[in-house]
Design a protein around this nucleic acid. Structure first.
Lengths: 157, 157
DNA sequence: GATGCTAGGTCTAGTTGACAGACTTAGCAA
DNA sequence: TTGCTAAGTCTGTCAACTAGACCTAGCATC
C-alpha cells in the first residue's frame, strides 16, 4: 500500500503546530497540574518534578502562547505574588488530556488502578471520549476513519 | 481555591506514564505519519524532518514499547527490508491524535485552512470527538468535569 | 529602618540529548 | 565484482536539560 500522504507536504499540519507549543518536555505535565487545579509555582514544581528553571521557562512560554495567564494573589503577611490559570485556549486542550489519560489507563496502568478518575460534575458518572462523525455515526476504530487532503494541503513539488 | 490534588501523589498518574513513552521530541510526529499510512524509514525521515539517528532511536523505542511492529517487505530488485506498522496499542492513540489535530486546527490554524481532514470511511462526514459521560450526557466543557481520586490514588505522606 | 521570612524565581557548571554530514551495511541485479 | 539502494551507524559540534546554590522583593516584627 502506498499512501496518498506521500504526495502532500507536512509543513502546515496543525499537529506539528500544536506540538511546537505543547510538545516540549514538562509542558504537558504542567498543563495536567493546571487541570488538577494547581496554580502556584512551588506546587507545580513539587508535583511535576520539573527543575525550577525549566518550570519557569515553560510557564513563561505557556503564558506567551496564551494557554495560561498570570493572576495576582495575596496571602496574609506576604507580598503579592502571581499564580497561573488556564485560559480558554488552554482549557480547549482538555480532550487531549482525557485521550492521553484513557490511553495511559489502558496501556500503562499501575497495578492498583488509575490514580485519578474523571466524573461528570452533574451526575457523577465517568467521563468518556467518543469518536463519531457529523452524521451521527459512532466510530469505534481508527480504521473507520479516512484522512483526506484539506483546503490547506499542498502537493509536494 | 485549594485543590484536592495537593493531597495526592502524582507518581502513579498514567498521563505521566503515557508521556514517558510518547512524549519525547519527534515521537508524536512519527506516529502522525504512521496514521497517515507512512511506513518506511526514508519516507518518515522526509516527512517528519527528524535526523536519521533520532528517527532510528524513536522507531526502536516505539517497537520496544509495542506501538509499532517491524514487518518485512520486498521491492523488485531489492533485498528484503523492514517497515513499521501500527499495532493495536499504537492505533489506540488515535483519539489523542484527533484531539491534538482539533486543537491545532482551532488555535494554530494556517491561513488557508487545515491540511488534513478526517472523514468517516462509510459516509464521508467529518470525524468529531465528543466528551460525554457514562449516563449519556453530553459534556461541552472541561468545567463540567470533576477529577476525583481513583483506586490507585495515594495520599501524600 | 534593619532583619528575617518566603514564594518565586535566576546563575553556574556539568551532563545528556539533538543535530548535520559522512560513512557503512546487506542483498539483489547485471 | 561492481553498482545500486534503503536503512541504518559514526563522529564532532552544539543546544537543552539538570542539580544545587544563590538572589529578590514585599510584608511583618523588632
Amino acid at each position: 500500500m502506498s499512501s496518498w500522504a506521500l504526495d502532500y507536504e507536512t509543513a502546515n499540519c496543525t499537529i506539528g503546530a500544536a506540538l511546537a507549543i505543547v510538545g516540549e518536555k514538562w509542558t504537558f505535565l504542567v498543563l495536567r497540574e493546571a487541570f488538577n487545579g494547581i496554580r502556584r509555582f512551588d506546587d507545580m514544581r513539587r508535583r511535576t518534578g520539573a527543575p525550577r528553571q525549566i518550570l519557569s521557562d515553560r510557564l513563561a512560554r505557556l503564558v506567551a502562547e496564551g494557554l495560561l495567564r498570570r493572576a495576582p494573589y495575596r496571602e496574609d503577611g506576604q507580598r503579592t505574588r502571581y499564580e497561573y490559570r488556564l485560559t480558554e485556549k488552554g482549557i480547549d486542550l482538555f480532550p487531549v488530556m482525557v485521550a492521553l489519560l484513557g490511553w495511559g489507563d489502558k496501556h500503562a496502568r499501575p497495578a492498583d488502578g488509575p490514580a485519578v478518575l474523571l466524573t461528570h460534575r452533574d451526575c457523577g458518572a465517568p467521563v468518556t471520549l467518543r469518536l463519531g462523525c457529523a452524521d451521527g455515526h459512532q466510530i469505534e476504530s481508527a480504521r473507520q476513519v479516512t484522512p483526506v487532503p484539506g483546503p490547506g494541503a499542498r502537493r509536494v513539488a
